[in-house]
């Protein structure tokens, strides 16, 4: 009798169950972060420092033509912050791996993707918060977006999407290297060139040929260009926005399966 019941047992989880599991995992992560207020404050210190450094130290020496440097800078630094924020996903997952939490989750009857979906979703929520802080800091130092609100909202959505996709890359790296410190250093290795060899802080025309060629196809540049166009009307929006979306779609297709595979083998 029990054998019959066993055979009838579902061997796959429903979408509703997957979503429910992911939600539990997201709530776990948000609770954990919210209870570390000092950690949150420090997470904001770094991007704010970048804003102040570039606005008041480097800004005067950077020629952005007709546009105020602070207006040029803020979309760039917002994208940079979003990418840096994504590093936390991988670091956190490798911490969970080392603490045995991932083992426990993998031994439970939950969706394989739930831990990753939940974690990246929670990190996205944190990014909304970070984005808000960045905007406030931006306004304080003179950032004046003059495009319509819907356009600015689109820019923010694009940045959030960008950060979300990079969370998956970071998740893959964190689970593959398995160690929080390594995940952190490994993260900086790709994040620094990607964010600095881009249009985030200086116009790419000022860079030497090879670097400029890299910067021009760099997804960070495309996202920054789109965000600039959508917030301060600097340049064309559609081209870079479509370019960004194409990159994000491509990266998702590659890194979601890679991250899930790394999770299964963790």
């Amino acid at each position: 009798m029990s054998a019959v019941a066993d055979r009838a047992e579902r061997s796959r989880l429903t979408l509703a169950e997957t979503i429910a599991d992911s939600r539990v995992m997201a709530v776990r992560q948000l609770r954990k972060v919210m209870r570390k207020p000092v950690f949150i404050v420090f997470a904001f210190v770094q991007p704010v420092m970048f804003v102040l450094l570039f606005r008041y130290v480097f800004g005067g020496a950077i020629n952005t033509g007709g546009v105020d440097y602070v207006n040029f800078l803020m979309p760039g630094i917002i994208v940079q912050t979003a990418v840096f924020g994504a590093l936390m996903t991988g670091i956190g997952l490798s911490e969970d791996l080392n603490a045995g939490a991932i083992d426990r989750f993998r031994s439970l009857p939950i969706a394989r993707s739930a831990v990753l979906v939940g974690r990246t979703a929670a990190d996205a929520v944190m990014n909304v918060l970070t984005l808000g802080v960045m905007l406030l800091v931006g306004f304080a130092v003179g950032f004046r977006p003059d495009e319509p609100v819907w356009s600015i909202a689109l820019a923010l959505l694009l940045v959030l999407g960008f950060s979300y996709v990079f969370s998956w890359i970071s998740a893959f790296i964190g689970l593959a290297v398995r160690d929080p410190e390594t995940a952190q250093s490994a993260g900086f290795i790709w994040v620094f060139p990607l964010t600095f060899a881009s249009s985030a802080f200086v116009p790419t025309e000022s860079m030497p040929g090879v670097v400029q060629a890299f910067a021009d196809v760099n997804p960070v540049s495309l996202a920054v260009d789109a965000a600039r166009a959508l917030t301060i009307g600097y340049g064309d929006a559609l081209g870079p926005a479509l370019g960004t979306l194409a990159w994000l779609a491509g990266l998702l297709v590659v890194f979601v399966p890679l991250a899930v595979r790394a999770f299964r083998r963790a």
Binding site: E9, S11, K32, R35, A101, D103, S107, P109, I110
Partner: peptide, 23 residues
């Protein structure tokens, strides 16, 4: 072959306490 069926039937406690400090 049936990992989900197995997971529904087991509880695992390891060498390290896999509990969340902040919770």
């Amino acid at each position: 072959a049936e990992p989900l069926a197995v997971r529904r039937r087991i509880g695992l406690a390891g060498q390290f306490a896999a509990v969340d400090e902040e919770l």
